[in-house]
């Protein structure tokens, strides 16, 4: 089963999927105020957020008024189009450096799945025959280093680590030196989870980024923010602040195999214009997939068959 099959499966299981509601909504073929209001609820229920939803529904209203579509299918297409306008139609791959190593910095608040994402990403890159080195930059959380070590072993990647409590900048500095010495293609840097409103921790992150840049001019080539699909509107605040501290090049949306739709993506993409690069749909090594906006929107809006 494809990943979007899996998302659909998730939607089916709860019977609260967007489509379950949309189907009954669209089967009416009457596009009045009630229709749009209910549509608002559907989008808000998918965590798209009030502001983005209101804007999108307003645009849809205008389109419907202009075009006067007769069928629900056409309205679905319009809505999909509006979402894709925001998300971008193409999937975007990883930025690889012209000269190796490519350095990927992975950030996020606590518990979104940074370490797991790094493990899976390392596995993906290894499958493409790249030499991968992971840097255990989460020196704060108990056993974070061991967790990353397990994933590195599974993926067949090198690991550079210090002790728990060590300076994360020092770990990453060493990792970059090691990567150059060993001729690694890609270095993936883990960082400790931190809430974006903790000034000190965000300053630490700023420093980490600076040290990476100093150790290897041009790095980091990718700064990925990991977002949890179950997170609500706070994800927007997270993206804003992290983007300010370490300009982001991409997003990873994890835990899409549950019943959460991750609609906050739309709000984040709308405001910050950062592409979503990967989605996490499970706990296994190959459960990290490139994000394809068209498929994502289709999965949200396609009938449950």
């Amino acid at each position: 089963m494809g990943i979007f099959g899996r998302i659909r499966e998730g939607l089916k299981k709860t019977r609260s999927g967007i489509m379950g509601r949309l189907e009954s909504l669209f089967s009416r073929n009457i596009f009045d105020d009630n229709f749009f209001e209910e549509l608002e609820e559907v989008l808000i229920g998918a965590d798209v957020g009030v502001e983005t939803t209101l804007e999108m529904v307003e645009k849809l209203r205008r389109l419907v008024r202009e075009e006067r579509p007769g069928e629900a299918d056409r309205v679905v297409e319009m809505l999909k189009g509006l979402m894709l306008e925001v998300l971008g139609e193409e999937s975007s791959g990883l930025n690889l450096a012209a000269e190796k190593p490519t350095v990927i910095l992975v950030l996020g608040v606590n518990g979104v799945g940074k370490t797991t994402t790094i493990g899976k990403l390392a596995g993906r890159l290894r499958a493409e025959n790249k030499k991968v080195l992971v840097a255990a930059g989460d020196t704060f959380r108990a056993a974070a280093i061991e967790q990353l070590e397990t994933w590195a072993n599974r993926a067949g990647a090198d690991l550079v680590k210090h002790q728990q409590g060590a300076d994360p900048s020092a770990v990453l500095f060493d990792a970059l030196s090691a990567a150059r010495a060993r001729g690694s293609d890609v270095v993936i840097c883990d960082t400790a989870g931190r809430l974006h409103n903790k000034t000190n921790l965000m300053e630490e992150l700023r420093k980490v980024r600076r040290v990476v840049e100093k150790a290897l001019p041009g790095a980091p080539h990718e700064v990925l923010l990991v977002l949890d699909a179950t997170t609500g509107q706070n994800a927007l605040a997270q993206a804003r602040v992290f983007n300010d501290v370490a300009p982001l090049t991409g997003l990873v949306l994890t835990k899409l195999d549950g019943t959460a739709k991750g609609g906050i993506l739309v709000a984040v993409a709308r405001e910050l214009n950062i592409p979503v690069k990967f989605i996490g749909v499970g706990e296994k090594m190959d459960d990290l997939q490139p994000f394809n906006p068209t498929e994502y929107v289709d999965a949200l809006f396609s009938p449950l068959t």
Partner: peptide, 12 residues
């Protein structure tokens, strides 16, 4: 429960 959870908190 993560306090940042969105709409899905209800399903969970």
């Amino acid at each position: 429960v993560d306090a940042m959870t969105g709409q899905d908190a209800v399903n969970v």
